[in-house]
Design a protein around this nucleic acid. Structure first.
Lengths: 227, 227
DNA sequence: CGTGATCTTGAGGGAATTCAATGTCGGTGG
DNA sequence: CCACCGACATTGAATTCCCTCAAGATCACG
């Protein structure tokens, strides 16, 4: 059962809670000054579009989301994957610089940006958390940068290790995204991702139980690939 | 001559001034609560190292700096180039995640992070500027990400356009960094950068006056390459 | 069971890298 | 002043890695 505190009007909790328990009954949580409206998105539904006003942050409650950009020639670059507990749509600009979509069915908590910023001005703890969140995002994007200069093997290995940290139960990784998503995240083609995975299986670094389920058999081998 | 305000104890000015006039005489500027110590770095000198405590921000006054990481196999990835007016070392973590060096002789204004953060808690204007600076940094890193999935031509073209915006006088771009720096920034080899530049010269998009001086002859051609 | 979507595998080609040599520029000392 | 030197940059040839195009294989779903 839910602990009573999850229903309290506490913006700090909204920001910091890693997994928010499901919102039972009504879709609106009263959280003091910070309205947390819960919103559901079905598979492939748009959460927000590039260029739209960035009025809300979205805290993923369940499911997975992706941010992406489509270049003029049709190539798609995925900026990141967002799992439960992650915060999406963090921009200091007035407009979203990426689009966001639900990968699987997906529930998110909406947080009004202006309200949050105003609140941060008065409550140090909120401000501190906001800084930590945007700093985390910056580090994530920088790590992604480092990925993109590496070889296909290194990129895939790094991706697997990253996902293992985020979704793993033991050594098994249940991937929420398709090969195409992975490819567009890593700056590779879907074929190269597929080939690299079978290659990693051949050297006994991983085991492909099914296409979406991957077991890490030899993490140190993967780390070693990770230059 | 310097206007008197440049010497006033005004942290907002320190953050926002695009180009800080040279500090004549003593090396320490009294800026109220925010001490702005001026510091000089010679070519290739380290400004800070990866993993060191991130106690200071550095506002470049003159010269150019680079941030970088060296992977275990020796490859170097340059995270960004910082020109006069840019702020370096912005981390919300306790430690620097990149190293920083002066590319050319370089003067920077040191800003104590803790002091700045404390100040931001009391002055909205400071907080607002801090947000804008880190948001800018985030956008810069994301744009860099997009670069790294493109072809060599596109990367070099995008790099030239970026530098043109930042250092150009008309159509001439005076590059402060070496080919190796450019290569490590773009995730290419020095040879590929060189070849691509001569290629761009052949199609009359640019002119290589000298190796460090490049004239943009056809910006729309460069933009077109920029997918 | 079909049917479409997703994933894997194969063969060939192309873009960037590697390795190697040559060229250019700025400084230093004869 | 010019010859030499080292650092930096360009160019060339061969190779490697990833992409493209194409054909199967597998999976989910009606």
């Amino acid at each position: 059962m839910l602990s009573p505190t999850t229903h309290r009007a506490d913006p700090i909790k909204i920001l910091s809670m890693r997994h928010l328990p499901p919102v039972n009954g009504h879709q609106l949580i009263e959280t003091g000054e910070l309205m947390g409206a819960s919103m559901s998105f079905r598979r492939n539904a748009e959460i927000y579009g590039e260029g739209e006003p960035a009025d809300y942050l979205y805290k993923i409650v369940s499911g997975t989301a992706r941010t992406y950009k489509v270049l003029s020639d049709g190539r798609r670059q995925i900026g990141g994957f967002y799992l439960p507990g992650d915060i999406l749509g963090l921009e200091t600009a007035e407009e979203h610089s990426f689009s966001a979509e639900a990968i699987s069915g997906c529930k998110a908590l909406l947080i009004k940006r202006r309200t949050l910023v105003a609140l941060a001005g008065r409550q140090d703890e909120i401000a501190r958390q906001l800084w930590s969140i945007i700093g985390e995002e910056l580090r994530r994007v920088q790590a992604h940068n480092l990925l993109l200069i590496k070889s296909a093997q290194e990129r895939v290995a790094a991706f697997l290790l990253e996902m293992a940290e985020r979704v793993s139960t033991g050594n098994a990784v249940e991937l929420p995204m398709s090969r195409q998503d992975i490819a567009d995240y890593l700056g590779l083609t879907i074929e190269t991702v597929s080939r690299t995975l079978t290659q990693l299986e051949k050297i006994a670094a991983i085991q492909l139980s099914s296409s979406r389920r991957i077991v890490l058999r030899n993490r140190s081998a993967l780390s070693r690939l990770n230059s």
